[in-house]
Amino acid sequence: MNSAQRYPASAWRKSSYSGGNQGECLEVADGYALVPVRDSKNPDGPALVFPPAAFARFVTAVQQGELGPA
């Protein structure tokens, strides 16, 4: 089942931490027990889902610059 089938279009919003117009946009869907995340360029593709605490740790790491290029 792809993300479009599982989560309605109205549930998705562009993440405020996305890279803008550089093709690095993520969307998250609100209102679910797990946090679904998908690539905005592929709305019919799969979504990754994370427990809320894990997603919060990821967002904090991004905000603090702890994640960088490999």
Rank of each mutant, 00 (worst) to 15 (best):
M1P: 13
M1F: 06
N2V: 07
S3T: 10
S3V: 07
R6I: 12
R6E: 14
Y7N: 00
Y7P: 00
P8Q: 07
S10C: 08
S10A: 15
W12F: 11
R13D: 06
R13Y: 11
K14I: 15
K14D: 12
K14Q: 13
K14S: 10
S15N: 10
S16Q: 13
S16G: 15
Y17P: 00
S18C: 08
S18Y: 11
S18D: 05
G20D: 10
G23L: 13
E24G: 03
E27Y: 07
V28A: 09
V28R: 06
V28Q: 05
A29P: 07
Y32F: 15
L34I: 03
V35M: 00
V35A: 00
V37K: 00
S40C: 04
S40L: 01
S40N: 04
S40E: 11
N42Q: 14
P43G: 11
D44Y: 09
D44R: 08
G45M: 04
G45E: 07
G45K: 03
G45N: 05
P46H: 02
A47P: 04
L48I: 15
V49R: 09
V49I: 13
V49W: 02
F50E: 00
A56N: 08
R57I: 01
F58Q: 03
F58D: 02
F58A: 03
F58R: 02
T60M: 03
T60S: 12
A61E: 09
A61N: 09
V62I: 14
Q63A: 10
Q63M: 07
Q64G: 02
G65Q: 13
E66D: 08
E66C: 02
E66V: 01
G68T: 12
A70S: 06
